[in-house]
Amino acid sequence: MRIVVTGAGGLLGKKIVKVFSNYEVIGVYYSSKPETPNFLQLNLSDLKEIKKIGDLSPDVIIHAAALTDVDKCEKQPELARLLNVEVTKEIAKLSKETDSFLVYVSTDYVFDGEKGNYREDDKPNPINVYGRTKLEGEEMVKKYADKYLIVRTSTPYGSNPASGKDNFALWLLKKLKNREEIGVVTDQITSPTLNTNFALMLRESVERKLEGILHLTDASQISRFEFAITLAKVFGLSESLIKPVTSDLMRWLAKRPKNSSLNVSMASAILSQKPMTVEKALKLLKEEVESGG
C-alpha cells in the first residue's frame, strides 16, 4: 500500500508517517521536512502542483496539510480559503481520478461550542474563519471524492515541535521548567489529543478502510487549565505556577468555541486502538519527551 501524506512535517504529519512506516509512505511538505525516506516538496498553494501527487499513484492520500493558525485565518481569510478549501477540493478530485482512498483531517472548530460533546452527526456551525474553511473542506471531500474518511480531532499536542513552533503541551513544559507563572484559560473546553494516539487510531481506520466521518480525539473533555494542571502533576512540576484566567482576557483575534469537545463513543466502540484518558496520554508524552521520541 502506497500512502501519500500532505503536511508530513507538521505536528500530526510527523507521527502519521512514523506509524505507517511499515508501508510505502511518501511525505509531502512545503517547509518542514518530514522524517521519512521518501518525500516530495510541494507548494500546495500553487494548485497546478497538486497533480504531482497523482503522479505518485497513491492507494491512500492522507490530507493533513492546512492553515491551522486560527488568528492568521481570521486576518487572512483569502489565504485560509485557498489552503483549506481550494487545495482540499483539488486533492479530493485527484483522489477520484487516481481511485485512491482519501483521509481528510478536520477539526472540532467546525462546531460553535455552545453544547460540547459533539457527535459525528451533529450539525456543524463554525464561528471563525478557520472553522468555516475546514467545514468547507469537508464539503469538498464529500462532493468530489469517491472513497473517503473525514476525521475530526481537537487540540493536538505531542513531543515534537512542528514548523519551529511548540504545541500547547511543549509550551507549558518549557514555562513550568523555567519556573515561569502562566495564565491558562478555564472557560475553553476541548478534547486534547496526543498526536501518537491519533496517528495509531488513524492507521487502524485506514487499514480497515472506514468511511464517513469519525471523531479521533482522546477521551477526556477538559479545560485548558485542567489540562495544564494534569500535565504539571504527571511531570512533577509546580502546579502553583499555573494561574486561572478567562478567555476574555486573551488577545485573540478570532472567536474560540467555548466547548468544542468531541464525543468519541464511536471510535471507542469500533477501534482496537482506543481513545486515551488525558492522564494516560500525558504519561506516554512524558516517556516520549524523556526518550527524545
Rank of each mutant, 00 (worst) to 15 (best):
R2G: 03
G13R: 04
K15W: 15
K18N: 14
K18H: 11
F20D: 10
N22G: 15
N22H: 15
I26G: 05
E35I: 06
T36N: 11
L42C: 03
L44Q: 10
I53W: 08
I53L: 08
D55K: 13
S57D: 15
S57R: 15
S57K: 13
V60W: 05
I61S: 00
A64E: 09
A64N: 14
D71T: 06
E78V: 09
R81S: 14
L83E: 12
T88L: 06
K89G: 07
Y104L: 00
D108E: 14
D112Q: 03
D112K: 01
G113N: 00
E120Y: 02
E120N: 05
D122A: 05
N128R: 10
K142C: 02
Y144G: 00
Y148G: 00
V151R: 04
P156G: 00
S163W: 14
N167C: 09
A169S: 08
A169E: 01
W171A: 13
W171E: 10
L176S: 11
E181F: 12
G183A: 09
N195D: 14
T196M: 12
F198M: 08
R208N: 14
R208S: 15
L210E: 15
H215L: 12
A219C: 06
F225C: 07
I229Y: 09
V234M: 03
L237K: 07
M250C: 12
S265Y: 11
Q273N: 14
K274W: 01
P275R: 00
M276S: 06
K283R: 15
E287H: 06
E290R: 08
